[in-house]
Write a protein that binds this DNA or RNA. Sequence first.
DNA 1: AAGTGGTCTAGACCACCAT
DNA 2: TGGTGGTCTAGACCACTTA
Lengths: 249, 249
Amino acid sequence: MNQALELGAVAPLYKAVKQLLTQELAAGEWRPGEALPSEAKLAERFGVSIGTVRKAIDELVAERMVVRHQGRGTFVASHNTSRQLFHFFHIVPHAGDRQHPRTETLAFRRGRAESGEAARLRVATGEPVFRIRNLLRLEGRAVALDDLVLTQAQFPDLTEKIFTGRANTIYHLYQTRYGINVLRTSERLRATLAGADVAKLLGVRKGAPLLEINRVALTYHDVPVELRRSLVNTEQHEYFSDLGKDEAR
Amino acid sequence: MNQALELGAVAPLYKAVKQLLTQELAAGEWRPGEALPSEAKLAERFGVSIGTVRKAIDELVAERMVVRHQGRGTFVASHNTSRQLFHFFHIVPHAGDRQHPRTETLAFRRGRAESGEAARLRVATGEPVFRIRNLLRLEGRAVALDDLVLTQAQFPDLTEKIFTGRANTIYHLYQTRYGINVLRTSERLRATLAGADVAKLLGVRKGAPLLEINRVALTYHDVPVELRRSLVNTEQHEYFSDLGKDEAR
DNA sequence: AAGTGGTCTAGACCACCAT
DNA sequence: TGGTGGTCTAGACCACTTA
């Protein structure tokens, strides 16, 4: 039976199943929010027991690629649901409840990747990119200024109209229109001082302390999708990081 | 068989097993680094199958309470190993490899918990506490100033001599001497400006931007153990947060 | 009622480690 | 060699969802 999968090495069967499912997911075999075949059908297709399929899917769930619903099925993870929305947005009020930000696009331009950007996006220097500047508001107050860099290759027909006309979050747009599913992020944080231009946009005085967040958003196989530099006014808000919280259900 | 466990509700058996193991771990039934009974013995003791014990331990592993080693056994997680050491230290050089910090204790005092501290430590205002100030250096350079608050109740006989005389990390001391195992942390980050005193200690100019990290360290059942406020000079270093990385093995 | 994922079991065999 | 965790299987039954 194990011959049916052939992963070269003597890797565990469930790893081979996981690998095959990941490849199908990355290839967009099923749309976000769509159901995968049932565990029984997958077991039959791969010629393994249901237990082995379950173990493979367990890991896909842990890595947030899919979501299970008892009685309904297993679904491709989507940036649709409220819980997923929150997952990559780490700015919370110093006091009070979490809010969804309102995003205003200040600039949408085309350009070329500088060497540092190219390295982080794992493309060649000079690669065509989009540069997008957004202002984020929480309860009407300007809280963060985001500068995004995307490769034009990954988002072929993107225009300012499409970007600002999205009905949902930015990552939801990536997912639904370009089949690019942001699965995790890597962030580096620093403290910096507001320059005159940024100060004006965020409504703080020049030289005010700002939190700088440099994010790389990654999709399947840790392929970089987006660079995002955020400058956050932390007078009324904070960045939060709960380590180990996800596992503690 | 299931009667043997009795968890009141109709919770899954493996959750009951997990709960019992967690209680034994929290009670210090086995010392950090010590082996738990084998899965077969636990299955026999609880009157369940090995598969059920494995599922319970799977979750304990995900929550970092225990570590499995094939062929050797399952062990109480310890702050001994290098990997564990790194897990709660998020400051990395802007360029270059991760380093362990050198800690110098600048102050060790006794005091009373203020209302905000008491709330976060979940004790009464005025509760006796320790206040400890540490200076952290990386490659000889002062990088962060840490102010810790611990309850005297949780660390009964702690003295400056014991604290500074520890052979290992601070969390290793909590674990080995007080049986308190830090399992996860919750952190809130802001940008702030260096005051004159802090500036002097960190070797920056007054008004320099600093990263402020407010941490609560938690043990079993999310009981608070330690408050820690860090002020970090991010000229040469950064705070990093890799979301979802733990799951992606 | 039919289909899905969730739990639990029992047993076989493998990979690794200590002795 | 014996003990440990790791993998894989097959099947029974439960809980939940949808129609």
